[in-house]
Design a protein around this nucleic acid. Structure first.
Lengths: 285, 285
DNA sequence: CAACATTACGTAATTTAATAACGTATTATT
DNA sequence: AATAATACGTTATTAAATTACGTAATGTTG
């Protein structure tokens, strides 16, 4: 049921297309939004090809024809804003920068959703289920992610802690052993301290799960790497969306964990949830 | 530029429609996904009306005609999961629960994006710009959000701290004064301790900004409330997406802050960014 | 409640859009 | 260089959508 973003598909296919097809592709990618509003005739004119070429192009991408293609393209555009310029600039107002930031976050989530390896997720859930103890490590922004992870995973009735102090991390890593999972979160995957610490844990026979960027030193040395490829923000104004993606991946892992534990585990979760009731003012309605 | 979900619009308009129009509406709402794939003729047949009636129906909803309507409807279906069951259940596999969790997060972000008040955001940015000092307060999950906020806002060269310890919060609130902004984050907006603390700060003349649920006690007592209405998760398996939304809103505020400070401020941000370089292994390429 | 006006909606006609069929040109293959 | 295969445009055909128009139903006013 899950579509991969049509724009990505077209972009990927670009080198394999022949002349007129790539003309069509470029015309669409130049302004996908307007493509959804134009007729086959106007798009053909814009791409400087014949109408049947556009039609053939559409069929090549597993659509019934041009109208069907337009609908699929329109769907891709909702979550996917990759080709629309959504960078915040100095002239932006609240009305314009607010949706831009939401959209770029949404877009990154959609990209990762469609690209993340389910096998790796499964493997990580396996490791977490077997773990005798879990440590979540992160510095800076990733420290906040690690903290959130602790808050989520301690509910699973096993020893979980988070750390954002490199000395504590180092000591804990040095006492690591088989059965321990060191869940290391780092956007860049290049922070020296973090990699050192992960290596210590790994050398002690502990499992190191890395939530980080592909092809980074941390990913390379870890036992399992959850690789998240979120475009680096070169833009001064733009927020770092990788931490959001990391949080959602931790949600996915927690869900996988809960499902693996089976329905007998649900009452335990409910107990924890209910424990907070007395700390709150109840709703009157 | 931002559309409200077509399905909601149609549902809302249902009582105002006349006989054949409501037939069309019902036919579409019964299976919106298939409506995007059918021709005007087949939809007319399904709704037991004439083709022009379908066409008139489309035009009533601010679309150029049937094809345009289908595209807008298709877009609505992507972000809108209202009619698609996206709840995780015990039979889900990695392949199915992973996109579900991403999608529900994306959906909540889209809902807030389209409903959040830009005026309130502007007001909050005003307050943050004027602030002599900012405190981010949160407990549990919101503690992680507060921590992330500190990490973001300290870059702005003003005294910022985050706290997740109620005693510390209480003491700080009691020393609060005009010029201080207490940025209080709480998903429920009903945590007694947090509300107490916010009241202390408020009574001392400090500004209390609440990031919380509408119509909650915290929202009611705050100076400004950033109200985020994310459906409560009754589902045992489902993650809490409100914290993600909160993080994105903080991104929006930070962006608003940066823009308000103007371009002269950018070198300062670059300096902080560069300060981390020596802690990392550099890329070889 | 009749006469008129207005709105609702279908039939038929027209226009527009999309696709299929076919043929020529270009490029690859031996 | 000859042949095959692919690429792509022109023309023809079909399908889809829209407009124009007329009748029926409903509402309004004297």
């Amino acid at each position: 049921m899950h579509y991969q973003n049509l724009i990505n598909i077209i972009t990927d296919a670009l080198p394999t297309l022949n002349k007129s097809e790539s003309k069509v592709a470029k015309a669409i990618l130049a302004d996908p939004e307007s493509a959804t509003r134009s007729s086959i005739a106007s798009l053909a004119k814009k791409a400087e090809v014949s109408e049947p070429s556009v039609n053939r192009f559409c069929k090549r991408f597993d659509t019934a024809g041009f109208p069907d293609f337009k609908i699929k393209l329109a769907k891709s555009l909702v979550a996917g804003v990759r080709f629309v310029n959504r960078n915040v600039d100095a002239n932006d107002t609240v009305e314009s920068y607010t949706p831009k930031i939401f959209d770029s976050t949404i877009n990154d989530l959609a990209l990762v959703r469609d690209s993340i390896s389910h096998d790796v997720i499964n493997d990580v859930v396996d490791q977490l289920i077997q773990a005798k103890r879990i440590y979540f490590f992160g510095l800076g922004t990733s420290g906040a992610v690690a903290r959130d992870a602790e808050n989520k995973f301690f509910r699973f009735n096993l020893p979980v802690s988070f750390h954002d102090d490199v000395l504590m991390m180092r000591m804990l890593a040095s006492t690591g052993a088989a059965g321990d999972v060191f869940f290391v979160i780092s956007h860049t995957g290049r922070t020296k301290e973090i990699i050192d610490i992960a290596k210590i844990a790994s050398n002690n026979g502990a499992m190191v799960v890395a939530l980080t960027t592909p092809a980074s030193p941390l990913a390379a040395m870890s036992s399992i790497a959850l690789e998240v490829d979120v475009p680096e923000n070169t833009d001064e104004y733009m927020a770092m969306t990788s931490r959001i993606v990391h949080l959602v991946i931790l949600d996915v892992l927690a869900t996988g964990f809960t499902l693996r534990r089976g329905p007998d585990f649900l009452p335990h979760l409910a107990k924890i949830k209910n424990s907070l009731k007395p700390t709150r003012y109840q709703k009157d309605s």
